[in-house]
Amino acid sequence: RQHKISGVSSGCQQGGCLTCSDYNGCLSCRPRLFMHLERIGMKQIGVCMTSCPPGFYGTRSPERNTCTKCRSECDSCFNRHFCTRCRAGFYLHLGKCQENCPEGHVRSDAQRECV
């Protein structure tokens, strides 16, 4: 039972894969693309993307470029330590999402920021 490599079958349909398999989707990506592990119900398949989806940030390394989930209180971020938009109930201050703002700042619910 030879898996189709980059053939057209359920796991390998989307482009960008360097290698792929029916069940796991992309196993590795073409150069410069990011590997994102996408959850679809009970399935989790590899998808190769030019940039990571909202809620994830890209990390480059010699072995592979991957999309990693932002911290839980963060809707979107540059990296693990620098958030750009907070989840509801949190307020952005100096790249961090906090439930309260420091002295001299007030919470803006519209922007979810300390202003």
Binding site: N24, L27, L37, G46, T68
Partner: peptide, 29 residues
């Protein structure tokens, strides 16, 4: 199902609500 590459680091990950059993299809590639 978990992709084999999802078990590489302990990044902030999705939390399942109910009890679950993980299945991973390993690939030599």
């Amino acid at each position: 199902q978990y992709h084999p590459l999802s078990l590489c680091n302990t990044s902030e990950d999705e939390r399942q609500e109910s009890d679950f059993i993980t299945i991973v299809k390993l690939e030599h590639r």
